[in-house]
Write a protein that binds this DNA or RNA. Structure first.
Length: 448
RNA sequence: GGCGGCGUGGCCGAGUGGUUUAGGCAAGGGCCUGCAAAGCCCUGCACAGCGGUUCGAUUCCGCUCGCCGCCUCCA
């Protein structure tokens, strides 16, 4: 079975599913208050790869990822644009799924929305208040972090040092009993969207939705909860605290992906304002190059993305595409089993996609110089690994070539038959200027 | 201040106590080609610095320097 670095444990551990043959994953999804940035692109691809790989390995995977469609940033944007918050949320959710589809990220089995689970959240908050884990203060209901004995587990810091380091928003300072406490229910100010609750109309705090939705859809003791590393604290810590205070067995394992950093090595974050739009990047490069780039870095490492790195990755992708076209016939052949076993070994060891990709390139090279039967087994393994397990779909078919171009190619063949190299080269230059790569093969001129 | 991570050849980016190399991109040489393209073969005395452990360290330990993350919204 697959091993992953478990953030709660601090080391790589084997993931034993709670139910044999099945695997349940909850991924913290986006707040739909703007266009997706590179960090969103990475986390979705990373966990999409995990999902695909586990499925490829024969597990029945249930994959849930939420959409936070009510949150302060959405309200701010809605007010700025003079629109209802739900309109802003639905607009950016549309952009989100469109982007995911360009990235080749499979849609989750379930995509719960925070606004669809408010009554359940109110119930949970009520139980936490009743049991003394939460309290009503001036502007909302707060969770008392001190009431959970191992609070700080995911932060990997004891509670008192978290308390010492905590900074407070001025508005919260008056309400919180302790700086580490966090809001469960925000009472609505005039003009803000709200839902009814025993404490007055308001909206849920961010940390509650994932508790209710993950347990509600996957049940207690689900297998894996993931997200970006920056969510481990406070978001996941706070989710865990609530579940624990509510007497629930929460996720069995936690895993987090590394951050995207800019060219200076600094994390892209909203407050710094150095996030890059994923949409711009996908417009400028083949979206598969981004996926390949994500695969070539280990999921827990910080990853730098820039024009230079994507240019280079696009070149590597081209190499794979050329191979895929030449060996398309092998797509349905029986894949080389040794290669797949090796692949499985890399992936099972903390999702080592960089090694898996290196193996893929190695198989390409080996297939090219192997005997025909071996070559198709190796090529088939390449397809199996990249396409079916890692979700990097190769272009097995050449792009459509217009008749006019084909005609010129035929004329070039005639010229070459006449050994009229001047004319042949002129045609090649002409087609090249139109963006075609001209190659001479056994069957004459080909263009791509 | 507390907790943690990283520093690899022109670039991106894996990995390991010692026989032979990650991989990709770029570069150089060769084969193939009418010339190319694609492909194949070959080429880079890389592991921040200083000590220590060891028969032997890039890999383990310590220190120094540098960079970064979390403790605050964030994927």
């Amino acid at each position: 079975m697959l091993s992953l670095f478990d953030t709660a444990l601090g080391y790589v551990t084997e993931l034993e599913p709670s139910r044999p043959g099945k695997f349940s994953i909850y991924v913290c999804g986006p707040t739909v208050s703007g266009d997706p940035h590179l960090g969103h692109g990475r986390f979705t691809v990373v966990w999409d790869v995990l999902r695909r790989y586990l499925t490829w390995r024969g597990l029945d995977v249930r994959f849930v990822s939420n959409v936070t469609d009510i949150e302060d940033k959405i309200i701010v944007r809605a007010q700025a644009e003079g629109l209802p918050p739900e309109e802003v949320a639905s607009r950016y959710e549309g952009v989100w799924w469109q982007t995911m589809s360009r990235l080749g990220v499979i849609r989750p089995d379930e995509t719960p929305h925070a606004t669809g689970w408010v009554p359940e959240m109110v119930d949970l908050i009520g139980r936490l208040v009743d049991s003394g884990h939460a309290y009503l203060a001036g502007d909302g209901v707060y969770f008392a972090a001190e009431t959970v004995d191992d609070y700080g587990l995911l932060a990997r810091q004891p509670l008192d040092t978290l308390r010492a380091g905590a900074r407070l928003e001025a508005s919260e300072a008056a309400s919180k009993r302790s700086p580490v406490d966090f809001v469960l229910w925000k009472l609505a100010k005039p003009g803000e969207p709200s839902w009814p609750s025993p404490w007055g109309p308001g909206r849920p705090g961010w940390h509650t939705e994932c508790v209710v939705m993950s347990l509600g859809l996957l049940g207690e003791d689900f297998d894996l909860h993931t997200g970006g590393l920056d969510l481990s604290f406070p978001h996941h810590e706070n989710e865990r605290a609530q579940a624990k205070a509510d007497g629930k067995r929460f996720t069995r394992h936690w895993a987090h992906n590394g951050m995207i950093v800019d060219e200076g090595g600094e994390k892209m974050s909203k407050s710094v304002g150095n996030t890059l739009s994923l949409l711009d990047l996908l417009d400028a490069y083949d979206p598969r190059a981004f996926r390949l780039q994500v695969l070539q870095a280990h999921y827990r490492s910080p990853m730098a993305v820039g024009a230079g790195t994507l240019e280079s990755t696009a070149g590597a992708l081209e190499r794979l595409d050329v191979f895929a076209r030449e060996y398309a016939y092998a797509y349905t052949a029986r894949p080389d089993q040794d290669a797949l076993a090796k692949f499985r070994g890399f992936m099972d060891d903390d999702l080592d996609t960089p090694k898996a990709v290196a193996l893929g390139f190695d198989l390409v090279k080996r297939a090219r110089s192997a005997r025909a039967d071996e070559a198709s087994a190796l090529a088939s393994a390449v397809f199996d690994i990249f396409e079916r397990a890692l979700g990097l779909v190769l272009n097995r078919e050449a792009r459509a070539v217009p008749d006019a171009v084909l005609r010129r190619a035929a004329e070039r063949d005639e010229a070459r038959a006449r050994r009229d190299w001047g004319a042949a080269d002129a045609i090649r230059d002409e087609l090249k200027a139109q963006g075609w790569t001209v190659e001479d093969g056994p069957s004459g001129t080909t263009v791509r």
